[in-house]
Design a protein around this nucleic acid. Structure first.
Lengths: 333, 333
DNA sequence: CTGAAAGCGCTTACAG
DNA sequence: CTGAAAGCGCTTACAG
């Protein structure tokens, strides 16, 4: 890298344009406030000097960081990626930047990341994991940052929650399977609060409607393709052979499907499969996968929308924003 | 949110601990410089006040942002995700935060994002896309920011590049296929500079070794599963039926595989398949996919390592850091 | 090991 | 519509 030349600062631009720094600042932040001729001179001075404003200084003076922190467990869980992507896109329209934090599968690094976000005076913190640590909850509450919890609808959100009911997802799947005449579901679930809520919703509904207690298997957290394959092999040895496998993710469902194909087991005739998430692959697999579609991008947009409403001074009364979900019936069940 | 109480600032902590702000600052940044007894009093004062330092102010005073910008085309291209994840993990160890920017598939938003990063006085900018705009290249060069281009090794990097040779990947695949006795490759490529470099490497090597000009198909940018399926169907109608399909991504390869399975075409006996990227799925599909493994996480770590070396005052002489790649021969070819 | 003081580069009432 | 000036909350030579 070449030596760093002294960077032009606002005063340099001002001198060149024959105005004060205050006017340059106004030109940059509230252009409507400066006369057209003045504006043009400043515009040119900015161009000629290659001036790039220092937003650390600006933020300190205005106490606006224009920084939003987005905290997700990891990036492999591509189910959150659409949400992050939509958020980043929307926020950059507003001139915000997003700080990406990875809290880890167990959310262990969440308190440290929240503290980092608060140090930067983030305008908002958007969470996808569950924050259990009460001290950190209190810290955020006392600071007046906007906190948006996504992908779930906790009873008592820290601030605002944007998501859907995982219980309701489980219930809907149970309804659907009954209506199709399935009688012996087998549950394949990843560990994790949300998957567990869906599972519970399913089981409660299934039993309440007179179904037998379903057989089940669960996996430590990360649900990858391979688990679905292994699980399918064990399935064949159960006393009661299931007629449908309810998977907590499309990854698992895909694993089951591939293994079934390889074993010559017909889906859905011999065993049906239901996934969750509606990943791109769900519509492309053969057979196509029956699953639950979540509009992840919409979650991101609604989250940003909350920020905008609050920035506009609006009082947010609805602390739960339900984006719902759709069961998509395809070939696999 | 509750009303925002006035936040405790460094002076409040100092007063409580009976020291000056300077000492509190030293305690926070260079703890070795303060006496043990003093340190303990400050530690307690920090705890009691719930003080969280303001890093915008700190950054302005010290002209260190501890902010690194990571710019990727989008998040669907999960091939970069391992790199981002590793980078974020490593950087947070150093107390840096990462600003995530999405440049768009055509990298159209890259200049705006770079300018946003410079406004925040980012310590470094890490790119995965290709930056064509010369004005922006110059801007970064003149600013003395560390710029790391990843996932490729351009002849003239802006600053430092961490990646591998896409040409060499294409050549290796050609070698491999010849050694296995394949004679009629068909190329399935996504548009995009890197895929094109691999394609060219393959074709050059193939022709140089006396092979026939391969047939090929290409897709506009995003290569998803579905393209592979559609392509496979068209394949069967070619004059010269290929004996191996060389795909520019595992997504495409997977699509080909699934469609072949559905059509009852045996892989690799009737047609072989090679992918690129070694996504999780490559090892899990049936048959498993022969592909090129890139250690994406290592790219992220090496990038951070460059930052650390430079932070330590080291002069970086090797502007190309080659992380290499591995061809993994599995069942599909 | 610690403090007083200047300074980082902006923004924003206040006054005109 | 514009300017002079105070202030945002830290860091860091400098001096002791």
């Amino acid at each position: 890298m070449s030596e760093r030349l002294p960077l032009p600062k606002m005063g340099d631009v001002a001198a060149r344009a024959g105005v004060s720094s205050a006017t340059v600042s106004r030109f940059l932040n509230t252009p409507g406030m400066v006369a057209a001729a003045t504006a043009e001179r400043i515009r040119r001075a900015v161009e000629e000097t290659g001036y790039v404003p220092d937003l650390m200084a600006g933020g300190l003076a205005s106490s606006k960081s224009r920084l939003v922190a987005a905290l997700v467990p990891d990036m492999a869980q591509s189910i959150f990626n659409a949400t992050i992507e939509a958020m980043v896109d929307e926020l950059s329209i507003d001139g915000h930047i997003v700080m990406l934090g990875l809290t880890g599968i167990d959310n262990g690094r969440m308190p440290a990341l929240i503290s980092a976000a608060l140090s930067r005076r983030a305008d908002a913190i958007i969470l996808t994991g569950i924050l259990s640590d009460p001290a950190t909850r209190d810290l955020m509450r006392s600071r007046g940052v906007t906190v948006i919890e996504t992908w779930g609808l906790p009873d008592d959100p820290i601030d605002v929650a944007v998501g859907f009911s995982h219980r309701a997802v489980g219930q809907d799947i149970a309804h659907f399977l009954r209506s199709r005449g399935y009688a012996r579901p087998h549950l394949l679930s990843a560990a994790g609060t949300r998957a567990m809520e869906r599972r519970q919703g399913f089981v409660d509904d299934w039993l309440a409607s007179g179904g037998e207690q379903p057989s089940e298997q669960s996996f430590p957290s990360q649900t990858r393709f391979g688990n679905g394959r292994a699980a399918f092999r064990q399935l064949r040895e159960l006393d009661v052979v299931p007629d449908v496998v309810v998977c907590s993710s499309d990854w698992l469902a895909q694993g089951v499907l591939v293994e079934a194909m390889a074993a010559g087991v017909k889906v859905p005739d011999e065993v049906a499969v239901v996934g969750f998430g509606n990943l791109a692959i769900a519509a492309e697999m053969r057979p196509t996968i029956t699953t639950i579609d979540i509009d992840g991008a919409r979650i991101g947009r609604e989250a940003v929308n909350v920020l905008r409403r609050r920035a506009a001074g609006e009082k947010i009364l609805d602390r739960h924003i339900d984006v719902g979900f759709r069961l998509i019936a395809r070939e696999s069940a």
